[in-house]
Design a protein around this nucleic acid. Structure first.
Length: 555
RNA sequence: AGGGUUAUCGCCAAGCGGUAAGGCACAGGAUUUUGAUUCCUGCAUUCGAAGGUUCGAAUCCUUCUAGCCCUGCCA
């Protein structure tokens, strides 16, 4: 991985910290909560954290921020590790925030002893009322001035399970009139009698994000704690916790704008809804922007990394055009994916001057961009299939594929000229009759005349039936009639289109799930991991050849 | 009594007082046995707005405007 990167403000900070010897080595972390699958938005954070550490010869920890037992599951812990590895990154240490619960508990008691934390018995509603609003200061809790001894005793009782959920919390004693709402005596610990995926029933009190995360970073000696913009107002509290808990290391929190992409749902809540309501196949449905969905669709780790490095890092909230991802995917796959011929809507072609029952084999490159991929031999005979799109009885102005009287090349084979069109009772072309010119065989060096187009074809007898799946964005956010509708009602009902078609046997001889192909004119495809069987290959279209080639007649 | 933060081409994004990089998209043209790729060419006299400082301003100052985030016992 030698991705070029845009220079960014975080690199500048790190360079200075290294130059001034504030740090001799940087340590970053990627800290997901295991409450869902990773999506492409996380990829930006992963590439940043791991990429920066790699660039400056530092280290990166993968740390599960598992401080809320009700939302977290081992399934997610597992998938997150797989996805990070798939993206191509290796962590220095694999850690769980929950492994620090003992230390955090001790630090909470330290704050109590310093008179900086207290046990509060306000109900959630009262708490909200006492907090004030964006424009008005809050009021002190009546429990704010308890003695250190009483607080210590009550906190101990919270921990030992003496109180029900929601009855008490531990709060920091800071400033109920702060303009920064995070400073209005934020909650440090809450009671939650739930089984935790890692610590089981050992604890019934759990630390809140602001308290836990800063301690986690400090404990691990994280030098640069990179997170998204919404935590900017939490930074003063982050610094407060590190200082007042008398931590040895002082990490620095740096915020950047999260990734937004056109035609892409990034909200974990909404993605979970799609899975729970069975709108999609699961977290790895090829339409999902999850890393597992993109993987199943056929996107490569390289393409995602290149996107992340190329879009840069800044603090302005922005929306990246999904066409950029497609660009990096095409760029990556063009020399890697073998080029084959597939027909989605077949039109029968009979070469009237070709001998009956004769079969010859034509040799064709597996990838014109990569000679190392070799060649293969395709059977060629009198009856072929071409793409319906590649023939027009009455050609439009700039159409230069097959039409009556016109000559084109069959890729890897001969020039053919259309002479006759056989139509059904509705007037649709169902078969065309052509003649071929034996002089024009591919590779023969024929230069007598040129054709404007080369089209793809299949030997009718040898064509292998298979299935092609095409995808459209799950959301059509540009339609006005969708404004204000419930999320599930905005979903594009035609986001999946399944077509039967044919493919050449030779190209897909040893195809297995996750193999990528490029089909002439149809774009890049991936062998589906779920629906492909020994009897039938199922291909997911990853991207068309070009965005303007977007299918309009596949449905 | 609000606080934080952002604003440079259709979309990302460099730039940090010396006269607007790059990528995507788009549009022309050349090559092409994928209408792909590749290759040229074009694409911000202007940096949210208005004032000011300066020989010189996207960069400094002042005022204004707009967007995003914050009132979970989520992270």
């Amino acid at each position: 991985m030698d991705n070029k990167t845009q220079s960014n403000f975080i690199q500048a900070i790190i360079e200075e910290d290294l130059a001034t010897h504030k740090h001799e080595q940087i340590i970053t972390r990627f800290p997901p909560e295991p409450n869902g699958y990773l999506h492409i938005g996380h990829a930006k954070s992963i590439c940043l954290n791991f990429g920066l550490a790699k660039e400056f010869h530092g280290k990166t920890n993968l740390r599960f921020d598992d401080t809320n037992p009700v939302k977290e599951e081992d399934e997610f812990v597992k998938s997150i590790q797989e996805d990070v590895k798939w993206l191509g990154f290796t962590w220095d240490q694999l850690l769980f925030a929950s492994d620090y619960f003992d230390t955090m508990y001790e630090k909470a008691k330290l704050l109590i002893r310093k008179g900086l934390a207290y046990v509060c018995e306000l109900t959630p509603d009262e708490m909200r009322e006492y907090r004030g609003t964006l424009n008005e200061p809050g009021r002190n809790s009546p429990y704010r001035d308890r003695s250190v001894e009483e607080n210590l005793e009550l906190f101990e009782k919270m921990k030992s399970g003496a109180f029900p959920d929601g009855s008490r919390v531990l709060r920091a004693k800071i400033d109920m009139s702060s303009p920064n709402i995070n400073f209005r005596d934020p909650i440090l610990y809450r009671i939650s009698h739930n089984t935790h995926h890692n610590t089981g029933d050992k604890w019934c009190i759990y630390p809140m994000y602001d308290f836990a995360h800063s301690l986690e970073d400090a404990i691990e000696g994280i030098t640069h704690s990179i997170c998204t913009l919404e935590f900017e107002d939490h930074r003063p509290l982050y610094d407060w916790v590190v200082k007042e808990c008398e931590m040895e290391h002082t990490p620095r929190q740096i915020e950047f704008a999260r990734l937004n992409m056109t035609n892409t749902v990034m909200s974990k809540r909404k993605l979970k809804l799609l899975v729970d309501e069975k709108v999609v196949d699961g977290w790895d449905d090829p339409r999902m922007p999850t890393l597992s969905g993109l993987r199943r669709r056929g996107y490569t780790p390289e393409s995602i990394r290149n996107l992340c490095f190329e879009i840069g890092v800044a603090k302005a909230s922005s929306v990246v055009d999904s066409q950029m991802l497609d660009y990096f995917l095409r760029e990556d796959l063009l020399p890697k994916a073998p080029l084959g011929m597939a027909i989605i809507k077949p039109l029968k072609v009979v070469i009237t001057n070709y001998p009956e029952n004769e079969v010859e084999y034509v040799e064709i490159e597996n990838n014109p961009k990569n000679e190392d991929m070799g060649t293969r031999k395709l059977p060629f005979s009198k009856e072929l299939y071409i793409e319906q799109e590649d023939f027009m009885e009455v050609p439009s102005k700039k159409y230069f594929r097959l039409f009556p009287g016109n000559e084109v090349r069959l890729k890897g084979a001969y020039f053919i000229k259309c002479n006759d069109v056989i139509k059904d009772s509705d007037g649709n072309a169902i078969e065309i009759h052509v003649t071929y010119d034996p002089e024009t065989k591919s590779g023969s060096g024929f230069t007598g005349r040129k054709v404007k187009s080369t089209i793809h074809w299949l030997n009718a007898k040898e064509a292998l039936p298979c299935e092609f799946r095409f995808f459209e964005p799950l959301i059509e956010d540009d339609k006005e009639e969708n404004q204000g509708k419930h999320f599930l009602e905005q979903i594009n009902p035609n986001s999946l289109c399944i077509k039967s078609g044919y493919i050449e046997r030779e190209a897909v001889k040893n195809a297995k799930p996750l193999d990528k192909f490029q089909f002439v004119r149809h774009g890049f495809f991936n062998v589906d991991t779920k629906y492909t069987t020994p009897e039938k290959l199922v291909f997911n279209q990853i991207v068309p050849l070009k965005s303007s080639f977007k299918v309009n007649n596949y449905s």
